[in-house]
């Protein structure tokens, strides 16, 4: 057992896993806001674009997308570095879930708030950026937190295109030690610890943002089923909206 835990391979792998999580999360966040805002636009064409992005990339498993980037596209002359293929696939996939969170949260801001912005004669842009979005962001945090954990887990697939993340290193270590059960048990615990640390970070952010709205922190039970791997169940932020 000690030869597994002391192996530098796993620690190096864990660092790569965290890097991948970070890069993909940043890409996903940008895509989520871009397409989520399109999805809650007043213009039908903008909503259609948002809808298409979400339906397409939510329907496509990140693994399939990543293999397609890595194995298929080079055949038509488009070549990615492995890291880029991995981050792109994960970012596009989780960006689609995130876009639904953004759209759902904006829709979950009470209509009365929108009406107040009209009564104050704000421009559409001001309504969104000064009133609706600031109130929607705290609603987004719990589901975003769940998505981040899901993303951390999902990064394990990059080992299949030879990126040396934690899972990849585990396979190497298994090959050299022949102890499959033990190696992967240790690796599971490592993922678990990383997820718990992220969880603490997210809780802290949630508590801060709830204070912005002057609300009491919500219990996790209400948000746990936000269904981050599900195709956009947004029960945690008040339903799908329309």
């Amino acid at each position: 057992m000690s030869e597994i835990i002391n192996s530098p391979l796993l620690w190096k792998g864990a660092v790569v896993t965290l890097q991948l999580t970070l890069y993909s999360a940043v890409l996903a966040l940008i895509l989520a806001f871009f397409f989520g805002l399109l999805g809650s636009s007043r213009h039908g064409w903008a909503r259609a674009i948002g809808r298409f992005y979400v339906e397409f990339f939510r329907g496509l498993p990140a693994l399939v997308l990543m293999f397609w980037f890595f194995y298929s596209l080079p055949l038509v002359g488009i070549r990615f570095e492995t890291m880029v293929a991995g981050v792109l696939a994960l970012g596009l996939n989780y960006g689609a879930y995130g876009a639904e969170v953004v759209r759902g949260s904006i829709n979950a801001v009470p209509t009365a708030q929108y009406e107040a912005t009209v009564a104050l004669n704000m421009l559409p842009r001001q309504r969104m950026w000064r009133v609706l979005l600031p109130q929607a962001v705290p609603l987004m945090l719990p589901p975003f937190g769940n998505l981040l954990i899901e993303l951390l887990k999902a990064t394990a697939i990059v080992s299949l295109i030879t990126i040396s993340d934690l899972m990849f290193r585990a396979q190497q270590l298994r090959a050299s030690t022949g102890k499959g059960t033990e190696v992967f048990l240790v690796v599971l615990v490592m993922y678990f610890v990383m997820a718990q640390i992220l969880q603490l970070l997210i809780r802290y952010l949630e508590r801060r943002s709830e204070r912005i709205l002057g609300r009491r922190p919500r219990r996790r039970a209400a948000t746990a089923i936000a269904g981050t791997t599900g195709t956009g169940s947004l029960s945690g932020v008040g339903g799908e909206g329309s």
Partner: peptide, 21 residues
């Protein structure tokens, strides 16, 4: 919590080696 916050891919491989034992 443990099962939920660890990757399915790793769990599958773990089961693949652990179940026969």
């Amino acid at each position: 919590e443990f099962i939920r916050s660890t990757p399915l891919l790793v769990q599958l491989v773990f089961l693949f080696y652990a179940l026969p034992t």
